[in-house]
Amino acid sequence: EAEFTLKLHHMLPPMSMAHSKFLEPWAEKVEAESNGRIDIELYPAMQLGGKPPQLFDQVRKGISDITWTVGGYTPGRFPKATVFELPFMPSTAKATSMALQEYAETEMQDEMKDVHLLAMHTHAPGSFHSREKAIKTGADLDGLKVRAPNKIMSEGFKEFGANTIFMPVTEMASAISKGVLDVAVLPYEVVLPTKIYELVKHHTEIKGDRGLYTQFFIFAMNKDVYADLPADLQKVIDDNSGVALAGHIGTLFDNYEQHARSYAVKQGNSFDYIEGAEYDAWKAKLEPVREEWLEDMNDDDYEAERLLEKAESLIKKYESM
């Protein structure tokens, strides 16, 4: 019988990659290293109630003990992390995740003060998945109905004249199947389970030193629950968190991205790339989004330039590792 039973609550179904390849093995590893003194019960698919935006609060208040959630679901809550959501920030999920975790450990103590942070990480950079029209240049986005992944990217696509629509992930597949949407912007990791690769004909990937955009995730534990663990069990948790864990999760997402992409290849879809001069043109075109972010953050009394620079240099650091 375990001494400590921890409830891990998250939103994705049990068959998802995050559940089966990341959370379940993580839980098993912690259980094994604690010699069975910690037992982690997984509750996927919001089984403990509430909606995904409430996952963070549930762990903060101890309704669940551990959670894994998308930071963007609670806009305004983690302003410092939004630097990683800017266009042309992310590198591979591995490097970006490790950078984000170090950034969180040094810059985000106040934003994370209510929980015990295990790791922050990102997914692999997203791509364009379009139904009818292949997107070869930015001009091709003009007038298309584009589902943006978040508010920052929604502003970005408007620069290209796209008609941005924000709809829940659950609506997306049926919207794209009949053309209510022309383009979805997502990582392949989401394209695979939603079967969007069967509904679209074209994919456009960004090929340069950085990817188009990413989202950040928070893997966190209730503070009191962590504090109540004896030192040796805290060490088990510590051994399974931090920059190393962030890198591990990032690698999982990078590998799964390639796996998921292979389905689109097998489907016989076309692939286009934004590279070279076009890549530079995109970067220039989306520059106003970065400037607006700097302005907004400065208005809110953050040292926006410093944070941006720090995020950039951390990504470079882990890229070269």
Binding site: E171, S174, A175, K178, G179, V180
Partner: peptide, 9 residues
């Protein structure tokens, strides 16, 4: 719905 003007919802 069929011609993709709107979603079933």
């Amino acid at each position: 719905i069929y011609f993709g003007i709107f979603t079933p919802t």
